[in-house]
Design a protein around this nucleic acid. Structure first.
Lengths: 196, 196
DNA sequence: TCAAAAGATTAACTCGGTCAATCTTTTGCC
DNA sequence: GGCAAAAGATTGACCGAGTTAATCTTTTGA
């Protein structure tokens, strides 16, 4: 039984998120108050904060879906961690997945632009990545080497994705960038010395 | 001429920082309001914010002195970057420098404990490190390899320092930890593949 | 000694986030 | 189908961080 209540909750959730992102893209994150958003979605401010813990989460919850992804992938795979994540990143490039930065859909571009150029959001993104790093280190077995490797793997993904976003953001198409992106990914992952 | 004005500014600055840290250590960062601190230092709230841009900075300005240190060291040295930073870290261990985590003075321990266990402060620390990373990447010549190396170097320092702090925080003396700290530093820096 | 500049103060304000009390809606049960 | 209880939303007041503008005091340099 998919309760009516559930559906209304989902609706309110989506209405808030969509209203928020629309307003943020239009006026900028810092120039929109949570009161504006609550009003746009026809709910009260306390209600808004029942759905999203912080103003930032109105934007970041989309990315939050990928939390601990690296740890999950490594845990689920029988291949060595570096290979697993390198292969996954390459596949992401192929599929133009937003997490690789290689996506030139105008909405995605605008969304990423919002995140990267708003310091409160960039900071929150970094908090997510720190979390991912801790989770990955655990899956890698813990200890100094695991922590170092986890940090290096996630730094690598972050830097590759950011460089791709920069290129796309500079006007290059995803297809045009693809070849360089793949080269960079191969070079970057090749620099990583595996565990053991 | 060291103006009277300058001296008073310095006094107010120190009074604020000391009052703040004392109160934070006593009651916890989130349980002290900036109004409390301003009152303790006998100034008004707007005056406090002329000296420190944020509540966090009342704590973090001490660490902020070391900003861009890695970039400065590498720029000033004629040795290869990895050697330079590894040597500097080892020297820091010898001297029990707080940045290495290997310092068991009760005040230092309490201070680090405050920073690491207060999420607002840990977040601000991470912002500093991101800044350091960008600066280091520039000094390393920019480009993919420089960015990857900068990230790896600073991750390495962060992880080593945190592990040392954990050990000290768990009751071990700095002297007792020293040998393991040195071994870990050597192992960690040895994992790093230099540029070129 | 005095004019000008620097700095501090007060008071009021914005905004993010929380809380407590009240009211509405949904749901599960008879 | 109707109803009690629980879940959720609303309102309004509140807190704390940080800002702003107007006023006042102090330092400075001529």
């Amino acid at each position: 039984m998919t309760g009516l209540r559930e559906r209304k909750k989902q609706q309110t959730h989506d209405a808030l998120s969509e209203a928020a992102i629309a307003l943020f893209l239009e006026r900028g994150f810092d120039e929109v108050s949570v009161a504006d958003i609550a009003a746009a979605a026809d709910v009260s401010k306390p209600t808004l904060f029942k759905y999203f813990a912080t103003k930032q989460d109105l934007v970041m919850h989309r990315i939050a879906d990928h939390r601990h992804e690296a740890a999950r992938l490594v845990e689920a795979s029988s291949e060595p961690p570096v290979e697993t994540l390198a292969a996954h990143f390459r596949a992401g490039l192929d599929e133009r997945q937003p997490t690789t930065g290689l996506n030139d859909h105008p909405q995605m571009l605008a969304y990423h632009n919002l995140v990267f150029s708003t310091s409160a959001l960039a900071t929150r993104l970094r908090e997510f990545m720190d979390d991912d790093e801790r989770a990955l280190a655990v899956v890698l077995g813990g200890g100094l080497d695991a922590e170092l490797l986890a940090a290096q793997l996630l730094s690598t993904q972050r830097i590759l994705a950011y460089r791709n976003w920069l290129a796309i953001s500079g006007g290059q198409s995803a297809s045009k960038r693809y070849s360089a992106a793949l080269d960079e990914a191969n070079a970057a992952f090749a620099r990583i010395r595996p565990l053991g």
